[in-house]
Simulated assay, not measured.
Amino acid sequence: MQPPEAPAEGAREPLVTQAIAAEAAVWLALLHGPHRSRAMQRDCLAWQARSAAHRQAFERCTDTWQEVGGVSRARIQAAVAEPAHTGSLVGRPGRMALALATLCLAAVFAVMQWPGDTYGTGVGEQRLIVLADGSRMTLNTSTEVRVQLTKAKRAVTVKQGEALFEVAKDASRPFVVGVADAQVVATGTAFLVRSTPPQQEASAVFGVTLLEGQVIVQRNEGGAESALSTPIVMAPGDRLRVDRPSSKLRQSPAQARLDRPKLDQVLAWQRGVAIFDNTPLPEAIADLNRYNKVQITLADPAAMSPLRVSGSFRTGDNKAFAQAVATLFDLVVKQRDHGFELTPGPSETAPIPKEVETDR
């Protein structure tokens, strides 16, 4: 029986959780103990075959064992793949194997390069993360989240960006997602959370869209006055958006509102597109700018804000969007150091349509 194949060169580094690493250390301890058997070897190979993360954990723990006990990874893999026999590596006294196992368990958490509890994506990148409890997070472009799993609670903070959560059911441990001054509480459900940074031209501070199940959105404990004066229980299909307070009324709290958007439109980013429905041009540009370092700007945002956009556009292709909008709104695209600038067209008498409907 041969060891599992290594992941292909150039593949993304697998996510090794602390639970998987601990299991790898236990397997090494068992294989170096006095009760090693062929069945145990087969079970270990099957465990490694479960995922690239399991294989990576076993290799890392083997390296740690080598540093502690002077045993090579090749020899340990051979011990796993070949039949047990008297006088082999695992024939060491059980006490020595147990001591090495204890050292390995201690060292693996200190030596291994953990991915940590913070995950993120770059501009235009998407990433799927499976947490130790089985929950799945799909991160959209320019997103950063912090994860902390304990025996009492599963906590995630969306610092910026957009994330889709598919929560594994666990009634004893609520799944709490913090965003801005609020928290979304669930046990087993699917929902989308988007946090908008202050510098982005968007009306909402954050939004929560419930796909299935039920969640409760409430103000953080001990938080200042906010739009969430009372907890809001959401039903599937609901979207809660908390808008920024008006700059003229800085002392007034943000406003919360519920609506029911088209879920296909909300999740369109998973297909690499952005769908707008009578969306103000500045807001549409801000949304598309999340996916590209080449930015689109407006020469006169106040004068051009009445223009509204409807249609489907490919994310990451700001040049095509700028050209389409310029053509249909009689605007001019100018090349700038930062990207593209939209300015009013050369003809002041030409009518400018109030809305563009296109599928690009």
Rank of each mutant, 00 (worst) to 15 (best):
P253A: 10
I216R: 09
D259N: 09
P236K: 03
G237P: 11
K248S: 15
A254P: 08
Q251K: 10
K262H: 14
P253F: 11
K248F: 15
A256I: 08
E225D: 09
P261Q: 09
L240C: 04
S226Q: 01
V217T: 07
D259A: 05
M234F: 11
P231W: 13
A256M: 03
P253V: 07
S226D: 04
I232W: 01
A254M: 03
R219A: 15
L263H: 03
P231V: 12
P253R: 02
L249C: 05
E225L: 06
P236D: 09
N220T: 07
A224C: 08
G237I: 11
M234C: 01
P253K: 02
R244E: 06
P245M: 14
V242D: 00
E221H: 07
K248P: 04
A227I: 02
N220Y: 03
S229T: 15
E225S: 08
P245H: 12
R250A: 15
K248T: 13
P231S: 07
E221C: 04
P261R: 06
R244N: 07
R257W: 02
R241P: 00
Q255K: 05
G223M: 04
P236Y: 13
A256Q: 04
L240K: 00
L249M: 03
R241I: 04
G223V: 04
A235T: 13
E221L: 07
S226K: 00
V242T: 02
G223C: 04
R239D: 06
P245I: 09
Q251C: 11
A227K: 00
A235R: 08
A224D: 13
R250T: 13
R239M: 09
R219M: 12
E221K: 03
T230Y: 15
E221P: 05
P261A: 05
R250Q: 14
I232Q: 00
T230M: 09
N220W: 05
V217E: 06
K262P: 09
R239A: 08
G237E: 15
G222C: 10
